[in-house]
């Protein structure tokens, strides 16, 4: 009601009068040009800010530990001289600013320090273990994404307008249970059924194709159910929209109605949910790798926290945070490509 339209001759085309655009007036765009480009730039900026925060946080992690982290790492029995020596070798005796400069400078040269427990460079350990974690999470995400859409769409279409209520309740109840079971518990169940009981798959390790099956299933099931439920709910919402009534009034065949008219409108919400799932999957590797004794960075973070191996902790935290940032960025870019309206709606 408050945006004045550009002055037009009275008899010419009518002025916009959508309630959606009425209100507080548009916010200025970052660039005069395409809102999509502005959206992408905004997200890149956000990722850069996030990265800076992550850098600072991972650096200060060691300094935030109450007491003396070096003493904690080495245990109470080690001599004060050894503690001092390690402190020097970690560079913790330098002024804070100098330490931070060294830390960031080291990152640019791929130097993440040396692990206290194994004496190996942290970067080498991570480079060795990262591919495993990446493969585990990407495989699981693909299975979750590919499985969720047909299930969500099919159940929504069959349940539309309260039809087949028993089936609908059954399906959503089942999905709800799958979502409620934490992945580490599911992993233990899978091992007890398929490894101990049926002896179909090995219970631990990584490398053989048969060793991939159970971890991927354990990691993918929950996200698959979650995503399927989002698709289901979104689809039901879209099927209630007036433009679907319009499409119905045209008596379009079901295939056209659901695939061409309804499906494109659930893309934005599904992608956003997909982002949450992907990020959750990345974190979920911590638990799954521990259960299945997989040598990835997930099991590394747990063991490094237990042994208080601070250089290693810093490195893994940093890598995980960057993975999360990349996952978010990928989803944002996909959103900009697949659903340009969402980028406009944000501006």
């Amino acid at each position: 009601m408050t945006i004045p339209p550009a002055p037009t001759p009275i008899t010419a085309a009518p002025t916009p009068s959508t309630p959606a655009t009425a209100g507080r007036g548009e916010r200025p765009r970052l660039l005069g040009g395409s809102p999509r480009l502005a959206f992408v730039l905004r997200r890149l900026l956000r990722a850069a800010v996030s990265l800076a925060i992550v850098l600072v946080a991972s650096f200060f992690l060691v300094h935030l530990v109450p007491g003396d982290p070096v003493r904690a790492a080495l245990g109470p029995t080690v001599s004060p001289e050894a503690v001092e020596a390690l402190r020097r070798s970690l560079g913790l005796d330098l002024p804070l600013g100098q330490q931070f400069a060294n830390y960031v400078g080291g990152l640019f040269t791929g130097d993440l320090g040396v692990s206290v427990s194994s004496q190996r460079p942290v970067a080498a350990t991570l480079a060795e273990r990262l591919p495993t974690t990446l493969m585990l999470s990407v495989l699981s995400f693909l299975i979750a994404a590919v499985g969720a859409f047909p299930i969500g769409v099919a159940t929504a279409v069959s349940a539309r307008g309260g039809r087949r209520r028993a089936v609908d309740l059954g399906v959503s109840g089942f999905l709800g249970i799958l979502i409620a079971i934490p992945n580490f518990l599911l992993a233990v169940l899978l091992i007890s059924i398929f490894s101990v009981g049926l002896q179909a798959f090995p219970p631990a390790g990584w490398g053989q194709p048969s060793q991939v099956v159970l971890p991927v299933i354990a990691l993918a099931i929950g996200p698959l159910a979650y995503l399927a439920r989002i698709v289901h709910v979104e689809m039901l919402r879209v099927l209630d929209e007036p433009y679907i009534t319009t499409a119905r009034s045209k008596r379009l065949p079901g295939r056209v109605l659901y695939l061409r008219h309804a499906l494109p409108n659930i893309v934005a919400a599904s992608l956003t949910a997909g982002g949450v799932v992907l990020v959750g999957l990345v974190a979920g590797t911590v638990l799954i790798e521990t259960v299945f004794v997989i040598p990835g960075i997930g099991s590394t973070i747990v063991s490094s926290i237990t042994t208080k191996d601070y250089p290693l902790i810093q490195g893994v935290v940093l890598v995980y945070a960057v993975l999360v940032l990349v996952a978010n960025l990928v989803i944002d870019l996909a959103l900009a490509v697949l659903d340009p309206r969402s980028t406009i709606a944000e501006a």
């Binding site: 996030s50 992690l61 979920g284 926290i305 902790i313 935290v317």
Partner: peptide, 18 residues
């Protein structure tokens, strides 16, 4: 917003280091 983009498990692990 930025904090929300990290899964709780990573945040919790971070804090449990401290």
């Amino acid at each position: 917003d930025i904090l929300l983009s990290f899964p709780w498990l990573l945040l919790a692990l971070f804090f449990s280091v401290i």
